[in-house]
């Protein structure tokens, strides 16, 4: 009898302890339920491990707060199921607008449609949603095709008269990255057409998954297959840096030029150190600010352009040497 009494109390205490710990964790980590007058703008990017999306997040937050909105950001960690659950949760929370970077441009469609039905406007940043019937109120992104063209021009410059074999690290599930590769190929093909020798040959297009690990793995494989590989074009900085790791491991960093994309702090540093040759850079800070401007206009019932494409600019070592952020 005494034993079971003890058990009862112990169980009860443990339960309370468990609850208390959770409560604290939730409380400390959360933004709380503070409610500004105008409601919440909610943001679900592809992953917050890529600083590109956190720069967007910071700028949305600042601009949202300036306009009297609260801000909520969650991390789907490249998982479309998680992202779609998060959109359902946003709907339950009755946010005023959702800012989305689709993890998958098709599979996220049904979740977007649920937000449409709930009357919550959905805006996309960077990557677009291509699902049929999913209504997107506005999009702000980089002109990825033009950025890809810049990468192609940088590649021509990097390889010079000799040309050579090129590996492309792509990310087919993201439309923005497909466009980068398309723009890149357009410039390279046009360049090759008018030349008899010294052509630039794309020998492999492998999945870089937009991250270091996969970028490293795919590049290692390509280095085995092509002993005379001359350059790599990676569709973002993490996969470009993964490629650099593989190139360095094979001790071929002097022969192989790498071109990335994005211009995130790590990428810029690598350009300064000569690890990456150049990056067409995007402007995530402007994207975050512009998307909030669109939301403000939407909420005021004013008209605004459905799609805003910000041009990419090329960032090379000479830019990096003068960059005050890298000093």
């Amino acid at each position: 009898m005494k034993y079971s009494n003890l058990l009862y109390i112990k169980n009860k205490l443990l339960g309370i302890f468990a609850g208390a710990v959770l409560f604290c964790l939730l409380g400390c980590g959360g933004d709380g339920g503070g409610s500004a007058a105008k409601g919440v703008i909610a943001y679900t990017p592809q992953t917050l491990s890529n600083p590109f999306f956190s720069v967007i997040a910071e700028n949305i937050r600042a601009e949202a707060e300036k306009n009297g909105y609260d801000f909520l950001v969650v991390d789907p960690d490249m998982d479309v199921k998680k992202q779609s659950d998060q959109i359902d949760d946003f709907i339950a929370k009755n946010v005023v607008a959702i800012v989305l970077v689709p993890v998958d441009r098709m599979s996220i469609g049904p979740a977007v449609k649920e937000a449409n039905a709930a009357g919550i406007p959905v805006f996309t940043v960077d990557a677009k949603c291509a699902a049929e019937g999913a209504k997107i109120e506005g999009h702000v992104g980089t002109d990825n095709f033009q950025g890809g063209e810049l990468a192609g021009q940088a590649m021509i410059q990097a390889l010079g008269e000799e040309g050579g074999k090129v590996l492309v690290l792509d990310l087919k599930k993201a439309n923005s990255c497909v466009l980068r590769v398309d723009g890149f190929k357009k410039v390279i093909n046009a360049y090759n057409e008018v030349r008899a020798s010294g052509k630039i040959e794309i020998v492999a297009e492998l999945d870089g998954n937009g991250d270091r690990t996969k970028g490293y793995e795919s590049t290692s494989a390509a280095l085995q297959a092509h002993e005379d590989l001359a350059a790599v074009f990676a569709i973002n900085d993490p996969s470009a840096l993964g490629a650099y790791t593989a190139v360095k491991e094979a001790n071929r960093q002097d022969q192989i030029k790498i071109i990335g994309f994005d211009g995130m702090p790590d990428g810029k540093k690598a350009i300064k150190n000569g690890q990456i040759y150049a990056d067409p850079i995007q402007h995530p800070d402007k994207m975050g600010i512009q998307i909030v401007e669109l939301i403000v206009k939407y909420q005021a019932g004013e008209s605004f352009p459905k799609e805003t494409l910000l041009p990419a600019t090329l960032y090379t070592k000479s830019d990096a040497d003068q960059d005050p952020d890298l000093k």
């Binding site: 959770l22 964790l25 939730l26 980590g29 959360g30 933004d31 709380g32 339920g33 917050l48 909520l72 950001v73 969650v74 991390d75 960690d77 659950d85 998060q86 949760d89 339950a92 929370k93």
Partner: peptide, 17 residues
């Protein structure tokens, strides 16, 4: 998971929880 999404708990903290 739902509670953490509603309050915007950061992903790595979710994993800790």
């Amino acid at each position: 998971r739902n509670g953490m999404n509603l309050t915007g708990v950061e992903a790595h903290m979710q994993s800790v929880v």
